[in-house]
Design a protein around this nucleic acid. Structure first.
Length: 280
DNA sequence: CGAGGTACCTGACAGC
DNA sequence: TGCTGTCAGGTACCTC
């Protein structure tokens, strides 16, 4: 199981759940913590809306999971900081911090588990994405063809904000979080506090490539797990072993051997090498 | 529009 | 041991 998911972790979760859940019908919904339900406002409406619905497909957009249901409905899930989706047999003991349980006719449970209760579930009509939090306002999907180097440069040129803040802004680019933003900036040798519109064209293109590479590598290694969890398929993510700067403050930079810094930039803890990622 | 702060909530960990 | 303060991978909302 994976905690605190960014794009690669959510993608890993979707891949692990898709084959198991597609075609299954929701026979019961247990809401143990109402604040998790983001839409409809009435949790009972959420519960009744899900009953007898079949999951027809699963996908992802940014850090949101999408469960396609019949009757033109979508169940949109955002795990925020500590959310997990656990696939369990109905008779298995319910873990603490389990807030919503979808029970399938086939005897399987999908359990939404979330220590900090920041995560949300939205049941919406497919044509009303604006009801699912920031879902409708997401920027381009970084691993899709719509996200070209040209599109990326335009986004950066329109803003004088710190590049790190821009990378974390889901309205600009969907799916990057604090880990992968730091890792992408390190790979591109760009200081996180640099104003976005002051990067050279070469730096912008290098950062574009770094984002692509770090996200694909994250997916390849099934995401980053900081605890000894496994995903729905029983696989543990291992990308934490390949992080270059995140969580490695005080250690030596793999490139130049000077000490990795941890500072507060764009109101977030930010890891970088002061030597390779110099301010001009 | 953006920056910066607060809020949401709980647990882990460091320091005393 | 236990108290206190700080921190955590995310986002929404507020004010300036």
């Amino acid at each position: 199981m994976i905690e605190m998911p960014e794009l690669p972790e959510v993608e890993t979760i979707v891949r692990g759940l898709r084959d198991v859940l597609c075609g299954k019908t929701i026979a019961g919904v247990e809401i143990r913590e109402e604040m998790i339900i983001g839409y409809p406002e009435d949790p009972e409406e959420f519960r009744e809306g899900l009953l007898e619905r079949k999951i027809t497909a699963m996908g992802r957009r940014g850090k949101y999971l999408i469960l396609e249901l019949n009757s033109n409905l979508q169940l949109i899930i955002h795990l925020r900081m500590t959310g997990k989706l656990l696939l369990k047999m109905r008779e298995e003991e319910i873990e603490s911090h389990t807030h919503v349980i979808l029970r399938f006719k086939e005897g399987v449970d999908l359990r939404f588990n979330n220590v900090r209760k920041f995560g949300r579930m939205y049941l919406i009509d497919r044509d009303s994405p604006e009801k699912a939090g920031g879902f409708a306002g997401l920027g381009p999907e970084p691993l899709s063809s719509e996200f070209s180097p040209e599109v990326f440069r335009k986004i950066l040129k329109r803003s004088g904000r710190a590049i790190k803040a821009l990378l974390l802004d889901q309205k600009k680019i969907a799916g990057l979080g604090n880990i992968y933003a730091d890792e992408a900036l390190y790979r591109a040798s760009i200081h996180p506090a640099r104003p976005a519109d002051e990067l050279s064209r070469e730096e912008m293109d290098k950062l574009y490539q770094s984002i692509d590479q770090v996200l694909k590598a994250g997916i390849k290694f099934s995401g980053t797990s900081f605890s000894d969890y496994v995903n729905a398929l029983g696989e543990a993510g291992s990308f934490q072993e390949r992080l270059m700067v995140y969580g490695r403050d005080g250690e030596k930079c793999p490139r130049c051997s000077c000490q990795i810094n941890k500072d507060r930039i764009a109101s977030r803890s930010t890891h970088y090498c002061p030597e390779c990622q110099e301010l001009p």
